[in-house]
């Protein structure tokens, strides 16, 4: 984990395996060090955890942990200004996941709160208990944020790799 001075608004920047031990420490650091209202800090914390769990579960770049399953590798950056926090993750994805991610994010951005809650309920009920994901992380982040999800798929032509970037804005007021 690296922290930088406030003048460029980067609170935290991390690249590596998305273990919950690491991410929860980043989250606690933000809760303790930031001066925003409690609700804004909690939203930032929750968005950080959900975004990070998506990287941990779905990043195509994976690290084998001894005696455990694999962990997704990616990056997270948290920035701040007077009005809002931004939490951004970036991770490698399989080419076949590109279109579905774009479609899901676009659908979320085009839905109102009622529609998102309904979709959340349906997807959660469809999800198997043995599945470590409920497939409602993006919807939940959108509900916490109240702002459109900013997303992008980046192509690295040299390595033929695709990267998914998502940026969630949390208002401070």
């Amino acid at each position: 984990m690296t922290t930088e001075a406030n003048n460029n608004d980067v609170l935290v920047s991390y690249y590596g395996p998305f273990s919950m031990r690491v991410i929860s420490n980043i989250g606690k650091y933000l809760l303790e060090s930031e001066n925003a209202i409690e609700l804004a800090k909690m939203r930032l914390y929750r968005v950080l955890i959900e975004l990070s769990q998506n990287v941990a579960l779905y990043s195509y770049n994976r690290l084998q942990i001894p005696n455990q399953s694999t962990l997704g590798v990616g990056s997270v950056k948290i920035t701040s200004n007077n009005d809002h926090y931004k939490c951004q993750t970036l991770n490698k994805i399989l080419p076949e996941h590109k279109d579905i991610l774009i479609k899901n994010c676009a659908e979320i951005n085009n839905s109102n709160e009622f529609e998102l809650k309904k979709k959340k309920m349906i997807l959660r009920n469809e999800s198997s208990l043995r599945d470590n994901s409920a497939h409602i992380g993006l919807i939940t982040m959108s509900l916490y944020s109240g702002n459109p999800l900013e997303f992008n798929v980046l192509n690295d032509n040299e390595s033929q790799s695709h990267y998914f970037s998502i940026n969630v804005t949390i208002n401070k007021k």
Binding site: Y45, R46, I49, Q53, R124, N125, L129, S133, A134, T140
Partner: peptide
């Protein structure tokens, strides 16, 4: 004080 979306499935159960 916080539960993730995966935990919410079990709370629902």
């Amino acid at each position: 004080t916080y539960f993730n979306t995966s935990s919410s499935k079990f709370i629902l159960v």
